[in-house]
Amino acid sequence: MQIVNHSIPGKKSEKEITFSFNDKFLKAREGQTVAAALMANGIKKFGISRKLQQPRGLFCANGRCCSCFLTVNGLNHVLGCITLVEEGMKVSSNDADPDVRRKANGD
């Protein structure tokens, strides 16, 4: 849920933008990180761990723990907590090891 009237008036932009997560269109505010934009839409699970297949999401929010890995515009393993969301951005969950082969990416 977005906070509309924050207890301390911040300078957060009110400009709304549209991005997608796993092909579903969602709204976010300009200047938000991808991780926060997802959480504002009630999405906490960003991917699954590679060995035990357990859900993962935001943990440190400081670009260190790599728990918020997402695929952003086709690039795997992007840190959702330090990447700003952009209009039209295609975000998907991190569910498997990156496949970097040309063919896999339709190049």
């Binding site: 924050h6 938000q32 959480m39 504002a40 357990q54 859900p55 999401g57 943990f59 440190c60 929010a61």
Partner: peptide, 20 residues
């Protein structure tokens, strides 16, 4: 390791910087 478990600093960032 579940989503929804985070550091207290992360919760503050999400709330005060990201306004979520």
């Amino acid at each position: 390791t579940l989503p929804g478990v985070m550091t207290i600093g992360a919760a503050q960032i999400v709330m005060n910087r990201e306004h979520v």
